[in-house]
C-alpha cells in the first residue's frame, strides 16, 4: 500500500444487504489497493464477500437490497462511488471489464459471437459497425478462436471455448482493469489449464491489471502477484504471493491451506478449521474469526484487530499470530 500511483484504491468500503432477517454485512471496512499491471488474487469461501466487492467496484450492487454504506473506491484517482450512472456505464466494459463464472449464461444464445464482441466495441468506441466486426475477429484470434468461427452461435462452442469468447468480449475495449470472478470454476481441469494458459499469454501481450476472484489457492499461486484473503466481509491477510504461500500469517489462511489435501504427501487426517462461517447478519464481536480460531485469546473477542505489517508488504489482521512470525520466518 505504498503511495505510488495506484490504479485501484479501495478505502474503508462497507456494503450491506438489508433482508428480512436483518442486515447482511457483506463487506465490512475493506481496504485494498492495486498498482497498474498487477495481478491480485482475491481468495475466500462462499459468502466471504468477494463477488460483492467486485460488484461494488463495477457499481452493480443490486439496490435494493444492497447498498454501499461507506467508503471510497478510487480508480485512477477518481471515486467511482461519486460517478453518475451514465459515467459508470461508460467505465463498465470500457476501462473496467468483468468476466463472470458461468460462460454458459453470460453469452446471449441468439446472437453470433462476433456481433456480441462488436456490440461492446460499438458501445465504447466511435467506430463503424464494419470496424467493430473487424475488431471482433481480431479479438477472437487473440483468444485462440479461428476467424471462420466468428459467425457461430454460442451453443456451437464448448464450455472452454465459450469462456474464451467471454474473455474476448471483456478485453475488446482494452480495459485497464479486468475482474475475473471464478473464471475457470465451471470448467474441467484440462480445459481450465487451457484457459489459464491463455490468460498467461494475454498478460504478456496486453498490460491489463487483473483481479482474480477464486477459491482455488492453486490458481492464485500460478496467476497472481499479490493475494488478499477474505473472511466474513474483511480482508484478513494481504501479501505478495510468495510470502503468503511460504509463511501465511493469519490463522484462517493457515486453516485454508491445511484443508486442501496435499498431492505430494500422505496425510491421514486433514487439519480442519472447526465450526462454520458466521451468520453474516450477526457477526461475532472483535475479530470475526475468533470463535473458530485455535490461537484466540481473550482480547480477540473484544477488539477488531488492525492490519499489521509483519514484513514489507505483508499485512495480517491478527495481533496474536502476526508477531511471532517476524522472527520465526518459518
Amino acid at each position: 500500500m505504498e503511495d505510488k500511483k495506484l490504479l485501484l484504491d479501495i478505502q474503508d468500503l462497507s456494503i450491506h444487504y438489508v433482508v428480512e432477517s436483518g442486515t447482511v454485512h457483506a463487506v465490512e471496512h475493506l481496504n485494498l489497493s492495486l498498482a497498474p499491471g498487477e495481478n491480485l488474487g482475491f481468495v475466500g469461501e462462499t459468502g466471504a464477500g468477494k463477488t460483492t466487492t467486485a460488484l461494488g467496484i463495477m457499481g452493480l450492487v443490486p439496490n435494493p437490497p444492497g447498498k454501499v454504506v461507506n467508503g471510497k473506491i478510487l480508480f485512477e484517482g477518481e471515486d467511482l462511488l461519486k460517478k453518475t450512472e451514465e459515467q459508470m456505464r461508460s467505465i463498465r466494459g470500457g476501462k473496467i471489464a468483468m468476466i463472470f463464472q458461468d460462460p454458459m449464461t453470460s453469452l446471449n444464445p441468439v446472437i453470433t459471437v462476433d456481433k456480441q464482441i462488436a456490440e461492446m466495441v460499438l458501445l465504447h468506441n466511435n467506430v463503424t459497425e464494419q470496424q467493430a466486426l473487424e475488431r471482433a475477429e481480431e479479438m477472437l484470434e487473440l483468444v485462440g478462436i479461428k476467424r471462420e468461427r466468428a459467425r457461430d452461435f454460442p451453443h456451437q462452442f464448448s464450455g472452454g471455448m465459450k469462456q474464451r469468447v467471454v474473455i474476448a468480449i471483456a478485453l475488446a475495449c482494452n480495459p485497464t482493469l479486468l475482474i475475473a470472478d471464478e473464471p475457470t470454476t465451471a470448467l474441467d481441469v484440462t480445459i481450465q489449464a487451457q484457459v489459464l494458459e491463455l490468460m498467461h499469454e494475454l498478460r504478456r501481450k496486453i498490460n491489463t491489471s487483473l483481479i482474480m476472484i477464486t477459491h482455488d489457492l492453486g490458481i492464485v499461486a500460478e496467476m497472481c502477484d499479490k493475494v488478499a484473503i477474505m473472511y466474513a466481509g474483511k480482508v484478513v491477510e494481504y501479501a505478495p504471493t510468495e510470502a503468503l504461500f511460504n509463511h501465511p500469517g493469519h490463522p484462517y489462511t493457515e486453516g485454508l491451506f491445511n484443508s486442501i489435501p496435499d498431492l505430494d504427501s500422505d496425510e491421514e487426517e486433514l487439519k480442519v478449521i472447526q465450526g462454520l462461517m458466521p451468520d453474516p447478519t450477526n457477526l461475532p464481536s472483535g475479530c470475526t474469526f475468533h470463535p473458530r480460531c485455535p490461537y484466540a485469546v481473550e482480547a480477540c473477542s473484544k477488539d477488531v484487530p488492525p492490519m499489521v505489517e509483519i514484513e514489507p508488504g505483508h499485512f495480517v489482521a491478527c495481533p496474536v499470530r502476526g508477531k511471532p512470525y517476524l522472527h520465526l520466518g518459518k
Binding site: 462454520l276 458466521p278 451468520d279 470463535p291 473458530r292
Partner: peptide, 9 residues
Amino acid sequence: MNEHTEKNI
C-alpha cells in the same frame, strides 16, 4: 461453535 448464530435454526 458459534452458537449465537444458530439459535434460530
